[in-house]
Design a protein around this nucleic acid. Structure first.
Lengths: 189, 189
DNA sequence: TTCATTTCTTAAAGTAGTTTAAGTTTTTTA
DNA sequence: TAAAAAACTTAAACTACTTTAAGAAATGAA
């Protein structure tokens, strides 16, 4: 759990007894590669913080193909936030891309933790504000780049990341087909 | 300003003296239709809350065409959140779609307000969490729907909204051209 | 109440991407 | 270490959407 405490302490002060309170609210889980933490349609119970590994949020389009909406790695939060807030069925699948370790918290626990330790509100406010900014940029990129530009942009800005995920999965994140990615990589696009 | 106070009170309690403190931190601005609150490249200073009217966030693609990333109406927050947090140049244009009234707050003021009235952290945390959930859904829809499906989906779910914005602008939000929208509307897509 | 501007439409030609289908290479598992 | 599964590649045929260009309709300003 130390990773989360360290992460929180980058934003707010937490003494050791407060850190212990935070830790007490989370559950540790491991997920094997390809396994799902949440499936589309299942009620969303939890928000996840990634300790180790890599996960993704994806959905299926009308043709049944996977579309990756988001990747998450160490020290990122991952969840269907609308589903979590409303305790409604998930709009997405959340799946491990690598064998991973996460900690999770359900909505009641989070509410309780936040009323016991209100100073954490600031940590989550800033975390969500940052994620919202990132989501805005993601939408901008989806709109303004061609397939080839997206591919080069991603390779240039997240080279370590490209090593960790299969090419076909990256294709479904950048909004084109694995076949077309092969074409780009071969320089024939 | 009452609109904002009412909005905040849907989430947390605020007595009248607290409401007065909140109000004192905001500035009132009007924006004429087509005018910009922020232009791409200018330093982002403020976050805006819409009292009346309609605004949008857009950017220009490589061909110089506008792409609408987000619309906002009464009681919505609108900002370049990454730019706001980092006090960096804006990634987007923010423009009035109708003559509008907004209230704004800059980063220092928001920080000050939040340290004077920490209970507001919860309001912003929930607001951003909801917006983040909405952004996730927006990305899902961009990925999974064809142009025609997007058009019908939007008309069905936001009919009042369709009345308020020009068709060509809606096209740039749904990620196709105004010409193609005419085709869809004529039933010839 | 007219002129200018903005918005919407139509249609033909073009293209960035998909689809399909098959084969190859790499990784995982028993 | 062999067999199965997962990931990647190639290429030809196809299509959902864009581009270009022009005109028509609606809205706004003087």
């Amino acid at each position: 759990m130390d990773r989360l405490i360290t992460h929180i302490r980058k934003t707010i002060n937490l003494d050791d007894s407060e850190a212990a309170i935070v830790s007490s609210y989370f559950e540790y889980e491991t997920v094997k590669k390809k396994k799902h933490l949440v499936e589309e349609g299942q009620t969303v119970h939890k928000q996840y913080y990634i300790l180790k590994g890599c996960l993704r949020i994806y959905t299926l389009n009308t043709k049944g193909n996977e579309q990756t909406l988001q990747f998450g790695i160490e020290n990122w939060w991952i969840a269907d936030y609308l589903g979590f807030l409303g305790q409604t069925p998930s709009n997405y699948f959340i799946q491990a891309v690598e064998n991973s370790e996460v900690i999770s918290i359900d909505k009641n626990s989070l509410d309780e933790l936040l009323s016991q330790l209100p100073k954490l509100e600031k940590y989550f406010r800033l975390t969500f504000q940052k994620s919202l900014g990132a989501a805005q940029m993601r939408i901008k990129y989806l709109f303004t780049m061609t397939a080839e530009e997206s591919y080069h942009h991603f390779n240039k800005n997240f080279p370590e990341f490209v090593q960790r995920v299969p090419q076909y999965m990256l294709a479904t994140y950048l909004d084109f087909t694995p076949e077309f990615m092969s074409k780009i990589r071969a320089g024939k696009a």
